[in-house]
Design a binder for these strands. Structure first.
Lengths: 224, 224
DNA sequence: CGGCATCCGTGACGATACTG
DNA sequence: CAGTATCGTCACGGATGCCG
């Protein structure tokens, strides 16, 4: 099942697991932490319930995703990536890194969800300026309320997750439009107008460095 | 065209370019150098001519692939990756790296082509033991004749290409079965029986180190 | 409400035949 | 050799309904 290639090739093997439409985007949605079925549906506009349940079944069968039932009283089932999905995270990171270069501005019919940009920024970023194990809370105001993320600097990388940060060095608040503008380079963190649109509680300098790492342009040496 | 997701997300953008069936495998075939249409067909068993020409057209339109006509007398047209496809190579490398961990042994109906294993091994390898800019020629005997590859150590990485090496430090010859056995760990480079199946001209030590880098297991720290 | 199966229209895909 | 044309099949997207 899940469309084989019949090739003894690493790339083909990987694509047999995650090469179908939607599959890698499902994994993307799970990268920041466990999600319920309905969360995934709203994070994957356009997918049908049948396809989503099918993809989750395939990923579960491949050992990349586990289904877990939360303890009462929140007795709902969530899906989460397993430890075996580490290599998959690397693939998604490469995809995101490349995709950021050709992201441009939102197209007329594009949906914009803060989690996509936070994730894309985090995997692309090199957090060399930020102290190791420093922690940040990022709150993005969107049309459907506020999304809260927890971003931790660790080993030169940024590790994003859903939810609030336990002991943040800074709490940063902005709206989606500002996040978009920062991401595609329309505005700079150091602009006066940007400073008005970004509210920081806590360490101002580190917060600004985080935003810079998260939304700044990175030159990657593209290996030939 | 090419199935959109309507999401302002780096991963989605990347998948819109290379997310369809066969597309990344077409890119894989081009990673080692220019190829003709017929070469691609035989390197992608199962693809139809219509789909292949369609994928090439999309990739060309995206600026990732260029169509070029060779100078006479070999007046045939070839396809090759453009400079803009550098990020795509990174994605393929991540795919190959992950895929190698779950490669296992060939399945009953799997085709085996040496180029797939050479590529998978090269992108996975860290050539830290090999001197920079050293060069190797790898000849793999298969059912349909002999395939020749040129592998160069550069910047800690292995850079594979089709064709013979200009000034190789070593020339290594083996058959596909041996390459497969080395790749999946069934045999070791240092086994007596393996030594009989691998013929080396030139620097014996470097040749063995190259094979080890190309086919050995690498532990990657899988980021959480 | 979470999760999944079902029916149906559309489009992508696989196989083959055919053309410059 | 380098594709285009054709056709049957299957996966996908959308809507609906079932079950805990």
């Amino acid at each position: 099942m899940s469309s084989r290639y019949a090739q003894y090739c690493p790339v083909a093997r990987a694509l047999e697991l995650v090469g179908e439409r939607w599959t890698l985007l499902v994994a993307r949605e799970l990268l920041l932490g466990p999600r319920r079925f309905a969360d995934l549906l709203s994070g994957l506009p356009g997918i049908s319930t049948a396809v989503l349940s099918g993809r989750l079944r395939q990923l579960e069968h491949a050992g990349l995703v586990a289904k877990r039932t939360l303890p009462p009283p929140a007795a709902s089932t969530v899906y989460e990536l397993t430890d075996a999905a580490g290599g998959l995270a690397t693939v998604l990171a490469a995809m995101a890194q490349w995709g950021r270069e050709l992201l441009g501005r939102p197209r007329p019919d594009d949906q914009v969800q803060s989690v996509w940009l936070v994730l894309g920024g985090a995997v692309t970023a090199t957090a060399s300026n930020l102290p190791d194990d420093s922690s940040y809370e990022l709150r993005i105001d969107g049309e459907s309320g506020q999304e809260t993320f927890h971003i931790r600097s660790h080993g030169g990388h940024l590790q994003p997750a859903h939810g609030p940060a336990p002991n943040p060095d800074a709490v940063i608040t902005m709206d989606v439009a500002t996040l978009v503008a920062l991401t595609n380079g329309d505005v700079d963190v150091h602009d006066r107008q940007t400073e008005r649109r970004v509210v920081v509680e806590g360490d101002q300098d580190r917060a600004r460095q985080l935003i810079e790492a998260l939304t700044g342009r990175q030159d990657r040496n593209s290996g030939g």
